[in-house]
């Protein structure tokens, strides 16, 4: 493998990391602040993608679709919170897992009823068409550069919101010690609703951005959700900074693992076996890394909750 290819793969890893961060950011906020396991975060991402696709098709513009999908995703999040999640905050994690899993099933079937089972098409907006040649014969799509930028901007914005604003201070305080925050006269319920709606909008935003790259189809959120959980566990639950670092780490490990493992295995096995074993190992690598990191830092890289 040439240095050039290695650099390209590192860039691809960062790209995947930024996409994962967009999904994981909302999840870590909700999990961290509310101690609420929201398995339905993945379907909220899917819902965002569908809403973006539907609005883009209706208005003929990706940007209008994005602008309309964000408040719609926010509204859908608020509705879900009102109908389902609000009643679960005081229950144990098992009840939350069961109920939010139910939401996954309902929404996965729901989008199929409304939009059909076949994947939808979301064209790249004309403004961001084309690519930059990063190695002979390989274009890096401009749209992906834009997604990279959007992800980093989101990370910056979230950092500012959480670290530099009053609402952010309450969120951090709520993540560290919710009982104390409540005792100080803050309406924790309202705070929770706000965080939840914001998390839903972040998931929807990630979904809309993913539309032109990934297949918009029922169940598209399920794979992403698993990786997003890996990210927030590695990063430390509730930590935006942790989610960002962990997402980049997971993206890099996954992408570099996929490209290097088969070659590495060839040192021990014959070519055909090495390719299959390497691929199998590479897909495990992220989880192995998670286990290793948790062995040394049980609360993740940037733990939030004291004790």
């Amino acid at each position: 493998m040439t240095t050039q290819l290695l650099l390209v793969q590192a860039l691809n890893g960062l790209q995947l990391g930024v996409l994962l961060f967009l999904v994981a950011a909302g999840l870590t906020l909700v999990f961290g602040v509310m101690d609420f396991i929201n398995l339905a975060h993945g379907v909220q991402y899917m819902l965002g993608a569908y809403l973006g696709a539907a609005f883009a098709a209706a208005t003929g513009s990706f940007w209008l679709g994005l602008a309309l999908a964000l408040p719609a995703a926010l509204a859908a999040g608020l509705l879900l919170e009102l109908l389902v999640f609000r009643h679960l905050y005081d229950r144990d994690h098992l009840s939350q897992v069961l109920a939010t899993f139910g939401v996954i099933l309902v929404l996965n079937e729901g989008v199929k009823v409304v939009w059909g089972a076949a994947p939808l098409q979301v064209p790249i907006p004309p403004l961001l068409e084309g690519g930059i040649e990063i190695m002979p014969g390989l274009q890096y799509p401009i749209y992906r550069v834009a997604v990279l930028g959007a992800g980093i901007a989101t990370a910056g914005l979230l950092w500012w919101l959480v670290e530099r604003t009053r609402a952010g201070m309450l969120v951090r305080a709520g993540a560290t010690n919710p009982a104390m925050v409540s005792a100080l006269g803050v309406d924790v319920r309202q705070l929770f609703t706000m965080v939840f709606a914001f998390g839903a909008m972040l998931a929807g935003f990630a979904g809309v951005l993913a539309g032109p790259i990934f297949s918009v189809e029922p169940g598209m959120g399920d794979n992403v959700l698993i990786l997003a959980f890996v990210v927030i566990v590695i990063g430390g639950i509730g930590s935006i900074r942790g989610a960002f670092v962990a997402a980049l780490l997971v993206g890099l490990i996954d992408t570099l693992g996929k490209s290097l493992m088969p070659d590495l295995m060839r040192l021990f096995l014959d070519a055909s076996a090495a390719r299959q074993a390497g691929a199998a190992l590479a897909s495990m690598l992220v989880y192995v890394a998670m286990a290793a990191i948790l062995a040394f830092r049980p609360a993740g890289l940037f733990p939030v909750r004291a004790g």
Partner: peptide, 16 residues
């Protein structure tokens, strides 16, 4: 010969 997981989302690494 490249083998990818069934849950693969992003093909950037393989495309490179």
């Amino acid at each position: 010969e490249v083998y990818v997981p069934l849950t693969q989302l992003d093909f950037s690494a393989e495309l490179a």
